[in-house]
């Protein structure tokens, strides 16, 4: 699987350069964002062509009897669909922006492969970024929920698409990881469990993941819905 890594000022720019160099189309490749660009650092993107042998040897779909029995989830198709719809929405908001898709896989708690689709929205002015994120990220969460609802209608499965605007997710992740480390430090020092404020599922996941490897503490969520929160416990 040939791949190249390219850095540029923005993810969109790096992606465009990589595709140009390889002479391929966006939907033929896997695009991974290795580093988000910000004021100091350039964005770094890895573009890989998917293994052509695999697609060649794939058995032909039987043409007769179009059975609609649970087609396998196609993350590439879901990502492309998500991008099409998000661009349609931004366009009709009179927002000039560029949307890029990042696919990544990770290993879940039971060793299963988890696929995540991230849509990056770039090129917005500061004010629009603020409006789109909203107070405590609520507007961004609405946009993301709506997009997943719409893509779900096309691909027949909840696609778990995450939208990032103006690097909000990364900044939020860094601040939550910092919080997790500080609380773990206190729990370690006092030997007492400490509860965090209620958080959204996506944010709780970041905290769980941040402390998963920590040998001195463990984390648990309690409560329901809007009041669900994490408690950090000392490991004896």
């Amino acid at each position: 699987m040939p791949s190249i890594e390219i850095s540029a000022r923005t993810i969109a720019e790096a992606t465009r350069l990589a595709l140009e160099q390889m002479g391929v189309d966006e939907d033929e490749v896997l695009i991974e964002v290795l580093q988000n660009g910000d004021d100091e650092n350039e964005a770094l993107v890895r573009v890989s062509t998917t293994d052509p042998v695999a697609t060649d040897t794939a058995p032909d779909e039987p043409d007769e009897a179009p059975r609609r029995t649970r087609a396998p989830f196609d993350p590439q198709a879901a990502g492309a669909e998500g991008r099409r719809i998000l661009e349609g929405i931004l366009d009709r908001m009179d927002v000039e922006a560029y949307v890029s898709v990042q696919h990544s896989t990770s290993t879940g708690p039971e060793g299963e492969t988890q696929h995540s689709i991230m849509l990056y929205v770039e090129g917005l002015d500061e004010e629009t970024v603020g409006i789109m994120i909203g107070r405590r990220g609520e507007t961004l969460r609405s946009l993301q929920f709506l997009l997943n609802t719409l893509v779900n209608r096309h691909v027949g499965r909840w696609p778990q698409i995450v939208i990032d605007v103006g690097n909000y997710r990364q900044r939020r992740q860094e601040s939550l990881e910092g919080l997790a480390r500080r609380v773990a430090e206190q729990v370690r020092a006092t030997g007492r469990p400490q509860a965090l404020d209620p958080m959204q599922a996506y944010d709780r996941r970041i905290v769980h993941m941040a402390l998963r490897e920590d040998p001195t503490v463990y984390t648990e969520s309690t409560g329901e819905g809007e009041t669900r929160k994490i408690t950090v416990y000392p490991k004896k």
């Binding site: 929405i89 409006i131 609520e138 507007t139 946009l143 709506l146 609802t149």
Partner: peptide, 17 residues
């Protein structure tokens, strides 16, 4: 009403501008 709320929020972005 979750979908309706999401639609209102998204319209709200365009309106806020």
């Amino acid at each position: 009403g979750r979908v309706a709320k999401a639609i209102r929020d998204v319209l709200g972005v365009a309106a806020a501008r």
